[in-house]
Amino acid sequence: MKITLNGEIKEYRDQLTVQELLQRLNLQPERVVVEINRIILSPETHNVTKLKTGDTIELVQFVGGG
């Protein structure tokens, strides 16, 4: 599948869920905000939301400090 991730085109051999994408990228799910095709994803649905070719994904992982 071919997706646009934070403005860059990325290609993956398998179809991934959001949870699997986060694992591949080594990101911590409780620290991220995921937007797919301009809709913010509920964190509870990371494991059931399947990505597909053509999806545009914005991913932000927060770091601590304030």
């Binding site: 409780e30 991220v32 905000v33 913010i40 509920s42 927060f62 770091v63 601590g64 304030g66």
Partner: peptide, 18 residues
């Protein structure tokens, strides 16, 4: 959003934007 921890920041952002 002016929190300290990454988890709180993500929680607020996810909830508020949705």
């Amino acid at each position: 959003e002016a929190f300290d921890t990454a988890e709180q920041k993500a929680m607020l952002t996810n909830y508020f934007l949705r």
